[in-house]
Design a binder for these strands. Structure first.
Lengths: 339, 339
DNA sequence: CACGAGTGAGAGAGCGCTCTCTCACTCGTA
DNA sequence: TACGAGTGAGAGAGCGCTCTCTCACTCGTG
């Protein structure tokens, strides 16, 4: 049966003006909070608005203002990663949503899948459906952000874009976090410190590996590297490989908590005690980290803050303000039991 | 510095018409795929469109068509539950997005937080920003869906709304799933089968508990109930209580995987072996279920299908078609090691 | 008392598109 | 050859709102 659209003629500015005995312009002024309306008239208008249940028509409004008051968040949709139990995206979404809500803006969510998805997003943004676009966790040197920016569309990315063309971005201090982690391991006297890196076409993967290398460099330790793709399975596999490569390693820095969980399972199966035989440190501090066996020492990144700042920067950019080309959020080491 | 809006005068229908040497109406016909245009003219127009990089202005279009081609998905935003590592929402979002993308519609995400959030959502929908609204996992007898439906806005909910006023909904076969789970436990000769129920103001919590009671009723077993709120912690706590209440229980049906994980931890700590001493069955089959200790036997619900169907129904409703007032998706028992 | 500044409200021109109505023209048929 | 049906394209009226311009009116001041 279905609750079909009863139509319910929505009142227009005109109707309200008629009822309040003023002009359309005055109603518009009242509705938009212009200061140049006499209080008495304002009240009359507001009453009419209430009585008629008037709500402005957004299409008509944006037709003339050239704004839509909504912003797009583009997420890569790679089935396995996005929305696995990695909690990154939900938290980013929450942060973005909070910030936008406070500014009374709407969030349009776009999952960029295949190439077609790319096209669609570009057309959508260029078509002026939104006032700006946020990109989260781009894969590699995606040309889309720069392309949109060149079209004059406000764009902010999460994670430094790899291409030449800069768009403003916000990211966390990957290198600093890794430094804390590796420093912690060194302090505890670990000597053979390996790493499980993330995918090398994503900025987070790249920077965390670079951070690991930099942190070890000072200590004359040799680096031992395996590469995963941020999934639990890849963490397990990478750990197996590391144990093959260097059975005597006594610590691993893993570039994500999910991979760290996989690594912990491999270690357990291999009969290594954590942290006694092998210390493990992850990265992210998702909820999972508190429930691994043993609970995971990890580098916390303020995920939903990324979302908030991302949206905040975009709002400012769209408002015509100048924003800093990069905002780097701090990371911190959360010490639990795995290291 | 900021990549500021260079403006980049966007061409209008008029400009395209001028260039192609036809009228605005004809360009509109071509752009919207009307069949009554001579192929030669169509080509000329399309060339002009391409050369000018014309993209229709959505605000102008919806001003006259009264459509926006976008739909809202409303999720409750209770910090702890939403976007915890419960994977429900991400999967629903993905499903909804897929379905909408195929229809070339956009997804506007709204997190309903406080009462203010409610207001905002109502105003937004009534304002005509979207062509329809989906609600996922309403808390209790939320009046919003019915209120919007009464205003003539197409609405579909996930999970049967509790109020009197029906809106079309899609849900999974909770009772059937629970029946499979309890049946499995009975078959294996379990005699004292407890349950950890979900919150009793959510339809999923209510129906799964009712299903448990119904399934036991035939078997002359006594029901043993503790209530959680779908979080891992509440699962742990509920399990502790159950062990206190009836130390000799030999099976638990838990209304969510996350709570089941909590329950497993409590059992482990209490020295009970799973499944030897106590069999555990969860509900949801989120990714976590494959990684618990031991891997969790659980009732799978096709989460992203819920999203797809939700969106599909809404699209149909918004298109003026009649839809069935309820769609129930099947559940199935996934047997792993915990029972 | 006259004048100019300041204030509050209305008139009216669009914003870019769709869609109905109208009309010119091409055929097929008697 | 004449007529009616069918087809393809243009004219033009809005959709509901914002915003500039204009104007009437009220004061304060010289």
């Amino acid at each position: 049966m279905g609750v079909r659209g009863s139509g319910r003629e929505r009142p227009t500015l005109e109707k309200v003006a008629l009822r309040a005995g003023v002009s359309r312009a005055t109603v518009s002024r009242v509705v938009n909070g212009a200061p140049t309306v006499h209080p008495r008239i304002r009240d009359t208008v507001l009453r009419a608005v209430r009585e008629l249940g008037y709500v402005p028509n957004p299409a008509a409004r944006s037709l003339v203002t050239q704004r839509t008051d909504s912003f797009a968040l583009v997420l890569p949709e790679r089935a396995s990663r996005v929305f696995s139990d990695d909690q990154f995206f939900p938290a980013v979404i929450r942060g973005v949503h909070q910030e936008l809500e406070e500014a009374d803006k709407q969030l349009v969510l776009m999952l960029a899948s295949s190439a077609t998805g790319h096209d669609r997003i570009e057309r959508y943004a260029i078509g002026g459906h939104v006032d700006g676009v946020m990109f989260a966790s781009l894969h590699g040197a995606d040309p889309m952000p720069a392309a949109l920016a060149r079209q004059g569309i406000p764009v902010v990315a999460n994670g430094r874009p790899l291409g030449r063309h800069a768009v403003p971005y916000v990211d966390v201090d990957h290198a600093g976090g890794v430094r804390l982690a590796v420093g912690h391991l060194l302090e505890r006297g670990r000597t053979r410190i390996a790493t499980i890196a993330g995918p090398q076409d994503m900025i987070a993967g790249i920077e965390r590996l670079a951070g690991y290398r930099a942190a070890l460099r000072g200590s004359r330790r040799r680096s031992i590297v395996a590469v995963g793709d941020f999934t639990r399975e890849s963490g397990s596999a990478a750990m197996r490989q590391l144990l093959d490569d260097d059975p005597r390693l006594d610590a691993v820095f893993v570039a994500s908590d999910l991979m760290a969980d996989g690594a912990l399972r491999t270690l357990r199966r291999a009969g290594r005690r954590v942290p006694d035989d092998v210390a493990v440190i992850g990265f992210d501090d998702v909820e999972l980290a508190r429930y691994t066996e043993p609970p995971l020492t990890t580098v916390r990144q303020p995920i939903s803050d990324i979302g908030r700042v991302l949206a905040g920067q975009l709002l400012r950019l769209a408002a015509g303000e100048d924003i800093s080309p990069a905002v780097i959020l701090p990371t911190e080491l959360i010490v639990r039991e795995s290291a």
